[in-house]
Amino acid sequence: MGADGLLIMHGGGPTAVINASLYGAVTEALESPRVGRVLGAVGGVGGITDGNLLDFSGVSASRLEMLPSSPSSAIGSSRKPLEDDDYARIARALRGQGIRWLLCTGGNGTQDTCGKIWRACQAEGVGVDVVGIPKTMDNDIAVTDHAPGFASAARFVAASVGALCCDVHGLPAHISVIETLGRNAGWVAAASLLADECGACGPDLIYLPERDFDEQSFLDDAARLVDEKRSGAIVVSEGLHKAGGEPVAEPLLRTGRATYFGDVSAHLARLIISELGCRARSEKPGLLMRSSIAWQSSVDRDEAIACGREAVRAALEGDSGTMVGIERISSDPYETRLARIPIERVMLEERTLPEEFINARGNGVTEAYRAWLKPLLGSPLPRYVTFC
C-alpha cells in the first residue's frame, strides 16, 4: 500500500459547517495529482485505529456537492478519551494504512489530539504531516479570530431570540429565560445582542460565564424588568457559575472534559417565580443551535470551505504541526486572511470573551461586540414589525 493517502478526521461536537470544511478539504485533495487516495475516518479517531475509512473516490460528485448544506458530520465524530500510549498506536496505524497526510477538524480537545498525534508521528519516525482545521460553535479556540461553526450558531441565536423578544413584547405576561450552549465562553450567548437587528427588540439582559453569577443581582435585575415592563427576555449561558466556580445549576454528568450541564434556564425561571412571585418561562434550544442549516451563515460556510482547502495546501507543502486560522484585517469592510498557526499555541488553550465586549455590570454586551460579530452573520437577519 503506497504512502499517498490523505485522511480527514472529525472530533467533538458537529456544527452547521463542519461538512463545508470537509467539502473544501476533499475537493482540494481530489484535484491534487500528488494525492493517491482521499479518505475519511468514519466515527472520529476510532476510525483510524479500527481501519474504518471511507474512500471519497467512490462518492459521486452530486453527493459531495451536498456537503456544504448538510448538518452534522457526514463522516461521524467522537469524543473518545485517549491515553498517552494511544497516540503511538494511532501513528503506527496511519503508517500501516499508507497515510501520508492527516487533517484533524475540531475544537480545543481535537486540536490537542492533533498536536499529540503529530508529536507521536515524529517520535515513532512515521512520515505523516498533520494539520488542524478549526471547528467549534463555542468560538473558544485560541489565536484564531473566530472558528468555523460559531457564526452559524450566532445567527441562529440572534434571529431566534429576536422572534422570542417580539413574542414577549406582544404579550407582556412573563419573563423568558433563554439558555445557550457555551461551556466556559460566552460568545454564543453574547450573540443574542444582535436580536435587535431584526428591527423590533432584543434581550433585556445577557449573562455570561466570563463573570461570576450572583443570584441577588440577577433577581434585582429581573425585578426591575417586572416593575418597568411587566415582562422581559433574559439570555444566559449554560456555563454560568458562582464566585469560586460553583455552577449555577449542578451538572448532570461529568466525563473527562465533557460536562452535561444542569438546566440553568429552568433553575433561574423557578428562582424568579419563587422569589419575585411573577411568571417566568425557560427556553433551551440546545443542539438546534449548532445543527440548524436553516440559519447557516454564508460567511461561515465559505470560510469553512476555505479552511479545508488551506489545510490540504499546508499539508502538501509539508507545513506540519499547524492549524489553519483566520486573521481579521478589517471589520468594515469585512476582510480576513488565512494563517497557519503552530498547533502547540492552540492545544487546549481556551479563548473567552474579552472584557471590552462585556458591560460594566456584567449583565449585557457592548456595542464593540456588535461591530465585531455583525460581519460574520452573512445576509441581513429577517426584519420584524410591531405596533405596540
Rank of each mutant, 00 (worst) to 15 (best):
A222Y: 03
A306I: 07
A153C: 07
L181I: 09
I18K: 07
Q216T: 12
T110I: 02
G162P: 04
D112Y: 00
L271Y: 08
G98L: 01
A195F: 12
A190L: 10
V346W: 00
G125S: 05
L82C: 03
G5N: 00
G132M: 00
A154K: 00
R345G: 01
A233G: 12
I48N: 03
I8A: 04
D4N: 07
R37F: 05
P333T: 09
R63L: 15
T15C: 10
S77N: 00
R95E: 06
E367V: 10
L219C: 10
Q122R: 09
E356P: 03
V324G: 00
G325F: 12
T180I: 07
V38A: 04
G364D: 02
Y23P: 07
D167I: 06
V236Y: 03
R313I: 07
T366Q: 01
L39T: 00
A147M: 14
S291E: 05
A189D: 12
E344F: 10
P375I: 04
V264S: 06
I133T: 05
V126E: 00
Y87C: 11
V168Q: 04
V161E: 01
V157Q: 10
D302Q: 11
A233F: 07
G199P: 13
G109K: 02
R351T: 09
E275H: 14
R290V: 12
L30C: 06
L22V: 03
K374W: 13
L6E: 13
E355M: 08
L225P: 09
V126D: 08
I8R: 02
S70E: 08
Y207I: 09
I273F: 10
I272C: 10
A314H: 08
E28L: 01
R328I: 15
E124F: 02
C388I: 15
R37E: 11
L287F: 13
C201V: 15
C104V: 15
G239Y: 10
V45H: 02
G115C: 03
I175R: 05
A269S: 05
G40C: 02
S231W: 04
E367W: 10
L53A: 11
Q122M: 04
I272R: 01
L194V: 06
S152L: 11
D319C: 07
D300Y: 14
S60N: 05
R224G: 03
D86W: 02
A223C: 08
E303H: 14
S57K: 15
V248P: 05
Q296Y: 13
S217T: 14
D129L: 00
E349A: 14
G36W: 06
R155A: 00
S57D: 15
R63H: 12
G24Q: 06
R211K: 11
R92N: 14
F213Q: 02
E215W: 10
N184V: 09
A315F: 01
G325W: 11
G199H: 08
A173P: 08
Q111E: 11
E197M: 11
